[in-house]
């Protein structure tokens, strides 16, 4: 957390001069579930990037690759996994109730407490 400043040291009128400084605020601590990226399965369709409410899908724009998650900010909502067409395909193919942390999925949602590197 930033140190609290006095009235002489902040811009007037409540103006915030540092655009996008919310990146300094870690919302990743809210997470109960963590998205885990299965690079091998990914087709780099960027659907997860399109739908992430937290701008937390990391992409390599030059090579047009999805590269992972911004875990500093990802709140673990699971939308990326739900919109992933690879996941949809896997779930359909499995023809069974698939656990959300099934290793066959492109984006798996793993309980934070149970996550291991």
């Amino acid at each position: 957390m930033a140190e609290l400043k006095g009235w002489r040291d902040i811009p007037i009128g409540g103006m915030i001069l540092e655009a996008g400084n919310a990146t300094e605020y870690p919302t990743g601590t809210w997470r109960a579930f963590r998205p885990v990226f299965g690079e091998a399965e990914c087709i780099h369709c960027f659907q997860c990037w399109l739908f992430c409410p937290d701008s937390s899908i990391l992409v390599d724009p030059e090579n047009e690759k999805m590269v992972g998650f911004d875990l500093e900010h990802c709140k673990g909502c699971g939308i990326c996994a739900s919109v992933c067409p690879v996941n949809a395909k896997v779930i359909k193919k499995a023809d069974e109730e698939l656990a959300q942390d099934d290793p066959r999925l492109c984006i798996r949602m793993v309980e934070e407490g149970k996550f291991q590197e």
């Binding site: 609290l4 400043k5 006095g6 009235w7 902040i10 007037i12 009128g13 409540g14 103006m15 915030i16 001069l17 655009a19």
Partner: peptide, 17 residues
Amino acid sequence: HPKTYGPLDFYDYYYEH
């Protein structure tokens, strides 16, 4: 230089403003 005007200002800074 994009600026934010009129943010939500709580007990930590409202008084300073």
